[in-house]
Design a protein around this nucleic acid. Structure first.
Length: 210
DNA sequence: GGTACGATTGTCT
DNA sequence: GACAATCGTACCT
């Protein structure tokens, strides 16, 4: 018998707070199309940044030119440059005016693998296909991300687009971050597909306890 | 105008 | 497992 994934209305889902969206973003496919070059990546690891309540978030101290697209409504793309070299991308969540985003930390390239290889080799070291999008900077490179697509709307099949899962996702792992001063208990910020080899093992945030 | 620092990656031990 | 590279952004004087 065939198990079908739940039908997801992304437009509606992405208006919810990040922590309610995070788990459901796993298995979603993000696609970029530049000059007829298409790359699709199935997300296997995401991390939540909860705007003004997360000290680790770029938006913790309010809106700046750099993080302004984080304040757009859910379903937009927030791209930023990390360490001067890497492009990392977030799926913005929540209503307009409230900053929230899910950092796409890792994924599996499901189409356009040749293009992805070329881009990764041009910007860094590629040891194996497993590493094509294992890590936020690498994922951004494979997709060809840059500030040119910062603020893009993801739900109308444009240059960068997001799609609901095409197959059921596996076991979902959740980890908390230490040092995040919430209202009390530590919050689950990082979500990943437990059985997937493309999940980044590097830099466990606080995790390791499972 | 100057400085400190990072939502990372790659290399070395 | 530990550390350096690298440069745009934010914040201070």
């Amino acid at each position: 018998m065939i198990q079908k994934p739940p039908v997801l209305d992304l437009a509606e889902l992405l208006q919810q707070p990040v922590l309610q969206v995070a788990e459901q973003l796993l298995g979603c496919v993000i696609t970029s199309r530049f000059d007829d070059q298409t790359v699709s990546i199935r997300l296997t690891e995401v991390e939540a940044y909860d705007g003004d309540r997360d000290p680790g978030s770029h938006a913790y101290r309010g809106q700046t030119p750099r993080n302004s697209s984080m304040f757009l409504s859910g379903g937009h793309l927030y791209v930023y440059r990390s360490y001067g070299i890497h492009w990392c991308a977030n799926v913005v969540c929540g209503p307009a005016g409230k900053a929230g985003g899910l950092l796409m930390r890792a994924g599996e390239v499901v189409s356009g693998i040749e293009v992805a290889r070329k881009r990764r080799q041009a910007t860094g070291v590629l040891r194996s296909d497993r590493d094509l999008a294992r890590g936020p900077g690498r994922l951004g490179a494979a997709l060809g991300m840059s500030d040119a697509v910062n603020g893009t709307w993801l739900l109308d099949g444009g240059v960068v687009s997001l799609h609901a899962p095409t197959q059921p996702v596996g076991l979902v792992g959740i980890s908390t971050r230490t040092g995040v001063a919430g209202t009390g208990a530590p919050l689950p910020y990082r979500y990943y597909l437990a059985d997937d080899p493309t999940v980044s093992s590097h830099r466990p945030h606080a995790d390791a306890s499972r």
